[in-house]
């Protein structure tokens, strides 16, 4: 193998990593807000799937991918509304709620998908193009890896410091973190716990829906059942492995994406091992990560515990 070829593959793997990070990063950094507010949303996978499915329907029906992006966020928000209703208003166990949402969405998307393509060939759409950033994209290596990406990829990376600022530098972020640690401290000051939990769930769900939308529009031209394939779960793992800190979440997402990117390059690398091994990597890695990283010092104390007065 020539050196030039090796270089090209390395750059391709890394550029792929950055792209693959995008949907998981949207979900993980958004759900970080939700979890910081004490709501352990286990329905991330379903929310993401709903976002991806909606993006597909809107993209193929209208031909506008930006409309599709918007729709995936709106629908993500709707799923979030249901999650918030179940967890913050009805105070059903957060885990059970998430499972219910996942199962519901799996059923709904499959059903609507069958109806949508009934009696015709599956329609396709034109996904996102790369938007190279002038000047920066011409830097050797780095330009191709970091600055020749889809527009939403830049947005996802910008979201990390933005969410950090929101959580740690605003009055609202302080209140939100307080919800995850001790919601009663807000309640006794007469501030609505439920209302704030709704907002936190919505932020997470809208961003997760957006992640699903990008997954659909940024990687493929057609929908397939269970297209999210556990990425929502990886987002949750990334939050835990990242010790509930924005930079940690970013690092954990990077690991998953790198593994997946390597898996997609296996054929090019010409390794003679069952491809399932590489496909299994991110899932295996998530278990190993959780086994190894046992620092949970920043886990919100009241995470996943419904608040009763």
């Amino acid at each position: 193998m020539s050196e030039l070829f090796q270089e090209a593959i390395l750059v391709s793997i890394l550029a792929g990593t950055v792209r693959i990070m995008t949907p998981i990063l949207f979900a993980a950094i958004g759900e970080l807000v939700t979890q910081r507010a004490g709501i352990w949303n286990m329905g991330v996978e379903g929310t993401m799937l709903m976002g991806a499915f909606t993006a597909y329907i809107v993209a193929t029906a209208t031909g506008s991918i930006w409309l599709a992006v918007l729709a995936s966020m709106v629908v993500g928000g709707l799923v979030g509304l249901l999650t918030a209703f179940m967890t913050a208003t009805m105070r059903v166990d957060h885990f059970i709620t998430g499972l219910g949402i996942n199962l519901l969405v799996a059923g709904l998307t499959l059903y609507w998908f069958r109806i949508y393509i009934k009696g015709r060939a599956q329609p396709t759409f034109d996904g996102f193009e790369n938007v190279p950033i002038p000047v920066l994209s011409s830097i050797p290596w780095l330009g191709e890896i970091l600055f020749s990406q889809r527009l939403l990829t830049y947005v996802a990376f910008a979201a990390v410091p933005a969410i950090w600022f929101l959580l740690y530098r605003t009055r609202w972020g302080l209140e939100l973190r307080c919800l995850g640690e001790n919601p009663k401290a807000l309640d006794i000051k007469g501030l609505s716990v439920t209302g704030r939990q709704y907002i936190a769930v919505l932020i997470g769900s809208v961003m997760t829906g957006l992640g699903g939308g990008f997954l659909m529009l940024g990687f493929s031209d057609r929908y397939l059942a269970d297209i999210t394939a556990g990425r929502g779960w990886l987002a949750i793992v990334a939050i835990i492995a990242g010790n509930w800190l924005p930079r940690g979440v970013l690092a954990a997402v990077l690991v998953f994406a790198l593994l997946e990117s390597i898996a997609t390059h296996v054929q090019v690398l010409g390794l003679n091992v069952p491809h399932q091994i590489f496909l299994a990597m991110p899932y295996l890695a998530s278990i190993l990560l959780l086994m190894g990283l046992r620092r949970k010092s920043s886990q919100p104390l009241r995470l996943g515990i419904p608040y009763f007065r």
Binding site: R171, L174, E181, N182, K184, A185, L186, I188
Partner: peptide, 22 residues
């Protein structure tokens, strides 16, 4: 009703709703 992970100051300030988002 204190947030054990917050500083004393943060515990006093949280939820007091003074002007501004910052």
């Amino acid at each position: 009703v204190l947030v054990s992970e917050f500083t004393v100051l943060e515990n006093i300030v949280v939820g007091t709703h003074e002007a501004g988002w910052k």
